[in-house]
Amino acid sequence: MRVVVDLARCQGYAQCAFLAPDTFRMWGEEALMFHSSPDETQRDEVLRAVAACPVQAILVDWLDAAPTPPPTTVAGAAPTAATGTATA
């Protein structure tokens, strides 16, 4: 997981620093400092901080996310919308 903050958009509300103090902290009154590659154990805290940002300045990039495999089909059968598997 990689954290990206748009510092031009950040207004220093510090909700992220309150919710995920191991990843975000305020330096002085307005400057935000953050760890761009937080540990996976901090995932829930980081996601709460992202959701709480009033100006949506924080993004999470899932570098380690496995790609979704394409749906499998059986000849002549269409994949189902819900599971991506073929129906007979």
Rank of each mutant, 00 (worst) to 15 (best):
E30I: 13
R2T: 07
E30N: 15
V4K: 08
P71G: 07
A14S: 15
A49Q: 04
V74R: 05
V55L: 09
P21E: 07
T68A: 13
A52P: 08
A52S: 13
E40Y: 04
G76R: 10
C16F: 01
A78D: 09
A77I: 08
L59F: 11
A31V: 13
R43C: 07
G28Y: 09
D61E: 15
E45Q: 14
Q11G: 02
T73I: 11
A82C: 12
C10T: 10
D61W: 06
T80A: 14
P67E: 07
C53W: 06
P54A: 06
T41Y: 04
V60R: 00
S37M: 14
Q42V: 04
A65F: 05
M33P: 03
A88D: 11
E30C: 08
S37F: 14
D44Y: 00
P69G: 02
W27V: 13
D6E: 09
M33K: 13
D44K: 07
L7S: 08
F18K: 13
A77D: 02
W27I: 14
A66Q: 11
R9T: 15
L7A: 08
D44E: 15
V5Q: 07
G28N: 12
T87M: 03
P54C: 01
A75R: 10
T23P: 03
C10G: 01
F34V: 05
Q42T: 10
A75N: 08
A88I: 03
A81F: 06
D64G: 14
T41E: 13
A17M: 06
D64C: 00
C16Q: 06
C16H: 09
V5L: 00
R2A: 11
V3Y: 08
A8Y: 04
V55Q: 00
T83L: 14
T41D: 12
V55D: 04
E30P: 06
T72D: 01
A31H: 13
A77W: 10
C10V: 05
E45F: 05
Q11W: 01
E45W: 03
G28A: 07
D22H: 14
A75F: 09
